[in-house]
């Protein structure tokens, strides 16, 4: 702020010190008025920036995308034996993530319940042998290496700790795609400021990983006892 005041003062002084100089249109303004308009301009700039930064930018940054069709975790959860029935570990220890068509096909070769969404699924995907192009809320950039086995099997964490109570949801929430990165808003978190986080699952950035690891006293690599960038960034 001081810079602005100094600049203003200098300009005023310059106008006073050189009375003989030809007066330009802009310099006819009286010092008090000039100062007022500068402050007003500053405030306007500030206000515009705040509006853009807090309201317009988030609105432009995310584009709401529909999933191919709706899906109820709640309905499925009642019929199967826990998350791992569909979101399972493969024999080699890797995590399968969102199930592929072959697994769904076990039950959905024909329409079961008769909702419009299920019909879409069966007729458009199962019968045409097309994988469902799900938009994945928790998809991380390619350089991020994350082992579900280390967390779920070794550390015996619940799915809900990081993914929230999604197993109880009756429908899929809209997928808010970050137009720059292509990833979901769920990675950064709903709150654009990144503050007011109440649950672990509300965001999935590196700091969120670090928070838990700090709490659990696991801040370094198990092998090297040093900072462990390459454990996750490969």
């Amino acid at each position: 702020m001081s810079t602005i005041e100094e600049n203003t003062k200098d300009s005023v002084d310059a106008a006073v010190k050189e009375p003989g100089a030809p007066e330009k249109e802009s310099e006819k303004i009286e010092p008090g008025l000039a100062q007022g308009s500068i402050i007003v301009s500053f405030v306007i700039g500030l206000a515009i920036a705040l509006i853009i930064g807090w309201i317009v930018f988030p609105a432009l940054l995310y584009s709401e995308k529909e999933q191919p069709f709706d899906f109820s975790h709640e309905v499925h959860n009642d019929l199967v034996d826990g998350c791992e029935s569909c979101h399972y570990f493969r024999d080699d220890g890797t995590f399968a993530g969102v199930p592929k068509l072959w697994l769904c096909r076990d039950c959905h070769e024909e329409v079961q319940g008769g909702t419009a969404d299920e019909e879409t699924f069966v007729y458009e995907y199962v019968w045409n042998d097309r994988e469902v192009p799900w938009r994945i809320y928790s998809k991380q950039p390619d350089c991020v290496f994350f082992s579900h086995a280390a967390h779920v099997v070794k550390a015996e964490m619940d799915c809900e700790t990081c993914h929230g109570p999604i197993g109880e949801s009756d429908s899929l929430k809209p997928y808010e795609e970050n137009v720059i990165t292509g990833y979901s808003r769920d990675i950064w978190g709903k709150s654009i400021s990144g503050l007011n986080k109440k649950h672990i699952w509300e965001s999935m950035k590196m700091d969120d990983c670090a928070d838990c690891h700090k709490e659990a006293g696991m801040e370094s690599s198990v092998q090297t006892k040093k900072d462990a960038c390459f454990v996750c960034h490969k």
Binding site: T8, S37, I38, V40, F42, G45, I48, I52, G53, F57
Partner: peptide, 25 residues
Amino acid sequence: MKIDRRSFLSLGLGAAAGTALTPLP
């Protein structure tokens, strides 16, 4: 109110300061 060079700069500075107060950067 006229928009002169100073107030324009001031607008920019206000915008810069405001931007710094948002998560945008």
